[in-house]
């Protein structure tokens, strides 16, 4: 397949819609985004610059949004971009600035016993990888058109109405709680 490195996401999706079989282009696109995400995520937890960490996180979250599009969850992708990249990241950057983090490299961002995280993470990954491979080895995700957004909203306003209301209360409570915590008396 002659798909270069400058693969266009929309073209990919159009192709996916056209050919409902296992799509190599889609897989390659997935692989590229995944590589970027993993690299960025790794940087988030290893970089010595807090601001860089935040920017890498933007990359990871944008990658997640892209993957959502590949998984035919368009509404979620948009929500992801708006909520995370639009709001959460701004919060993070404000948090970094208000706590007067050093601009530039900084030592002491890691714990003394940070090496403990390596075996835990590796062990966890081994477990998850084994379980995932064992269970979903041959499951193929069929190409399909994106889920229509109204289907999502139907779910929210019928079957999941009560949890939906509950989440709105949680958000309200969190907003008030954040104000109460952060204000100077």
């Amino acid at each position: 397949m002659a798909v270069g490195w400058t693969v266009n996401l929309h073209a990919l999706i159009a192709q996916a819609d056209a050919e409902p079989s296992v799509n190599i282009a889609l897989n390659i696109g997935f692989g590229l985004i995944a590589t970027v995400m993993i690299f960025a995520a790794f940087s988030v937890v290893t970089t010595k610059n807090v601001v860089h960490a935040a920017l890498y996180l933007v990359l990871v979250l944008a990658g997640v949004a892209a993957q959502f599009i590949l998984a035919s969850a368009e509404f979620l992708a948009v929500a992801q971009v708006m909520v995370y990249i639009g709001a959460v990241m701004v919060l993070f950057l404000f948090g970094i600035m208000l706590t007067r983090a050093q601009i530039g490299k900084e030592d002491g961002l890691n714990n003394q016993g940070w090496q403990l995280g390596i075996p835990v993470a590796v062990g966890l990954f081994g477990l998850l990888g084994y379980v995932v491979f064992n269970t979903f080895e041959d499951d193929v995700l069929d190409e399909r058109a994106p889920f229509p957004t109204e289907q999502l909203s139907d779910q929210y306003l019928s079957a999941y109405l009560v949890p939906f209301l509950a989440v709105s209360f949680v958000l309200l409570a969190a907003a008030i709680g954040a104000i109460v915590l952060a204000r100077k008396d």
């Binding site: 016993g113 940070w114 403990l116 835990v120 062990g123």
Partner: peptide, 19 residues
């Protein structure tokens, strides 16, 4: 952080045992 390490480590070990 240590609590986190213990939590995730213990969960991992427990899950591995179950598997």
């Amino acid at each position: 952080n240590q609590y986190g390490a213990l939590l995730f480590g213990a969960a991992t070990v427990g899950a591995i045992v179950l598997v």
